[in-house]
Computed example of a mutant assay.
Amino acid sequence: MSQARLMDGTALARRIVEDTARQAADLTRRTGTQPCLATVLVGEDPASVTYVRMKQNRCRTAGIASRHVALPARTTTEELVATLRSLSADPAVHGILLQHPVGDHIDERAAFEAIAPEKDVDGVTFASFATMSFGLPGFVSCTPGGILRLLDAYDVDLTGKRAVVVGRSAILGKPVGMLLLARDATVTYCHSRTADLSAAVREADVVVAAVGRPRLIRGQDVKPGAVVVDAGYNPGNVGDVDFDSAVERASLITPVPGGVGPMTIATLLEQTVTAAARQLGV
């Protein structure tokens, strides 16, 4: 069969950000208030610093104000929780992003839960997972939400399809499975203790790789014609899928970089403007 078509997350994300910028400008004009995203970073991990800077730059592109809170690596759970609660209570802040990981000495879940649900534009709280799972108004986890938007843009009909999610993290694997289930896919979660992962992947019409292990999914295990979404990002710009072999068997596949990553940020910005509109009552 011919090589898979690439699902271009960069181009789609650009269109979403352009539309978000128009919505932000209209909201600012009507209310006199610019949507504002607060980013919180603990420590100086180089990758995290780069990600936060990238998000701040995208905020400017989308007409969103950004407020950055940099905390030292020695910050305690209590101090981080206090910071997030303060931002949650600030009416000038409409969305909050806690850049993770935050360090092993911090209770990350306690920190996430300090974010007010109406400002949880990264979709990391219990409340956001529950509303997303039940199809109620709220905010989706940004990477899973971006993945669904990408599948929609390429007319992937999920009804009745077998979807295999490789990974079970609270902000990627688990929520993307719930979003696929809501689209009437039959979802199987796989993980590090799954017996015969290859066999499970071979049955999948849609594969979402989100486990953080470079080139774990091999082309020989991809069902011919399957849709492959690589949500992994490992050192050296390598995803969780062995792209060179998988592209020969899949019908659609995301590149790394340029696939899921840009969609994550676009979803974050879009949800920030939505949060601002809701909080301003317009």
Rank of each mutant, 00 (worst) to 15 (best):
V156Q: 06
L181Q: 14
I64T: 09
S198K: 15
R58P: 01
I96C: 00
V164S: 02
T10R: 14
I253G: 06
R168P: 10
A209C: 06
L87F: 04
D244H: 15
D155S: 15
R15G: 04
V273G: 04
A110F: 02
A25M: 12
R5F: 08
A195F: 11
D221F: 11
P91S: 09
A82C: 10
Q3V: 13
A231W: 09
F139V: 06
E113W: 12
G219W: 00
P101N: 11
S128L: 03
T125N: 05
A11N: 12
A24R: 12
A73P: 00
V201G: 00
L269D: 02
R14Q: 14
V49N: 13
V273R: 05
S198V: 10
A185F: 12
V165F: 10
R202I: 00
R85E: 14
V229M: 15
R193F: 11
V206Q: 02
A163E: 10
I106T: 05
A185N: 11
G173H: 07
D184M: 12
A199M: 14
L148K: 03
A231L: 11
H105C: 08
V140G: 04
R30H: 10
T20K: 08
A38M: 03
S48A: 13
D8S: 08
N234A: 09
S128A: 15
D90I: 06
L197P: 07
D122W: 00
D152W: 05
R30P: 04
M7V: 10
A82H: 11
V256Q: 09
D104G: 14
S86M: 15
G63R: 12
L71Y: 02
G138F: 06
T188K: 03
A110V: 03
A204L: 13
L87R: 02
V102D: 01
G43L: 10
P224V: 02
R193D: 06
T264H: 05
A250E: 04
V102P: 03
R85M: 05
V228E: 06
V121F: 03
A210M: 08
G259Y: 01
D107G: 08
V260S: 06
R74H: 15
L181Y: 13
T77Q: 07
T50I: 10
D196T: 07
A11H: 11
L269Y: 05
L181N: 13
C59A: 08
G138K: 03
A73F: 13
E78M: 10
I96V: 08
V207I: 15
A4T: 08
S2V: 15
V208K: 03
I115P: 01
E203A: 14
V93W: 01
L151N: 00
A246E: 01
A38I: 07
Y233W: 15
D120H: 09
R149P: 01
V273P: 02
L80P: 07
R215L: 01
L97M: 12
G63K: 04
P235L: 09
V208L: 11
R58L: 13
L197Q: 02
D107V: 08
I147V: 15
R14K: 14
R149E: 11
F243W: 06
L158E: 11
A246Y: 01
D221Y: 11
T39L: 10
F112T: 01
Y154H: 14
A4G: 11
P257K: 00
V201C: 04
